[in-house]
Amino acid sequence: MGTITFLLVLSFLVFFHELGHFLAARYFGVKVYVFSIGFGKQLYAKEWMGTTWQFALVPLGGYVKMKGQDDSKPSLVENGNDSYNTKKPWQRIIILFAGPFANFILAAILYFSIAMMGATTWAAQVGQVQKNSPAFQAGILPNDEIIKINDTEIKSWDEIGKTIVNSDGALKFFIKRDGVIIAKTINPYISDSENMFKEKIKKRMIGISPSGKIIKLDLSFSESVVYAYEKTLLSSSMIFQGVQKLIQGAIPSSEVGGVISIGKVISDASESSIIALFAITALISVNLGVLNLLPIPALDGGHIMFNLYEMITRRKPSDRVFMFLTIFGWVILGSLMLLGIYNDINRIFLNN
């Protein structure tokens, strides 16, 4: 069942990505020959609106084959008003960007659905209080519920950390204890901590940890829109930073995951709940959008780079350079895929 869910989720993500390209291409009058979910041998196909819509044998991706644009033939030229070749560079950039943008839109839709169904988070309830910390000295106790910091209403644990980090000086905490509201003034201290990439950082803290109590967020329609926007933005930022840290060497290459890891994560999420499945699908969708925008030839970001070059210099890269860089891009992508699969297999053997 997990494998079926994985293939369905992956096909859905690929469909949405390619639909972005397809709609933008058709908007600018570019003919689309093929809209494919999967690569390789054709399993099923139907002709509709001048396009062949198909499922192919290897369901690990997809593509739209436009007139005048074919990744397998980088130097392909086809003339006519309905050719990708004849469109202005800015129009081609929009067609290319539309795929990743569709992934961001899909992620936002999924996060919005999660918010409407009942997103959950840690309650703003204190679990442990570190000895001799500012919170300890102010008299904060386990099970205290933090309801307000200065003039900021607090609904979840995340908001506590966000408010502390984004403020200066002493803070006035309003605590609910045994049904009574108590005010406490706490002066955060700068302490050593770690970010999500396990890098050493300095951070304003008061010395408390969450109780682990889970609450359901009661969000209105407009609050759900804001929640979806913020979660999509946060996920995108996190993945961009992750790629940057990987390039810098802050994250070891052994952390790169492949299709096996993705499949396991989706399978586990599907067995947990529909909300968990939506959340991991949204995260993978953002991941797909971000990675496709990297300036690697053969990816959307690489093609965007070529078109930006044409806009600036008023000339296209030579066919030889274009072909070389595209093949180089495929080598990079192939190497990353093999690295991910190698790491996945390694983890399987280490866990057994």
Rank of each mutant, 00 (worst) to 15 (best):
I4S: 13
F6Q: 08
V9Y: 09
V9M: 00
F22W: 00
A25P: 11
G40K: 12
M49G: 12
T51L: 08
F55I: 15
P59I: 05
P74S: 11
N81Q: 09
D82S: 10
D82Q: 05
P100H: 09
P100V: 02
F101A: 15
F101I: 13
L106N: 10
L106V: 07
A108R: 00
I109D: 02
A124Q: 07
K131Q: 15
E145K: 14
I154A: 11
D158G: 14
G161T: 03
D168G: 08
D168W: 02
F173Q: 09
K176F: 02
D178E: 14
D178T: 05
G179D: 08
I182T: 14
K198L: 09
K213D: 06
V226M: 08
L234G: 06
V256S: 05
G257Q: 03
E271A: 14
E271H: 15
S273K: 00
S273I: 04
I275E: 11
I275V: 15
A276C: 10
L277M: 13
I284C: 01
V286H: 04
V286Q: 07
V290C: 11
L293N: 04
P295S: 05
D300N: 07
G302L: 04
G302S: 00
E310H: 10
R314A: 12
F324M: 08
L325Q: 00
M337E: 03
L339R: 08
L339N: 03
Y342D: 04
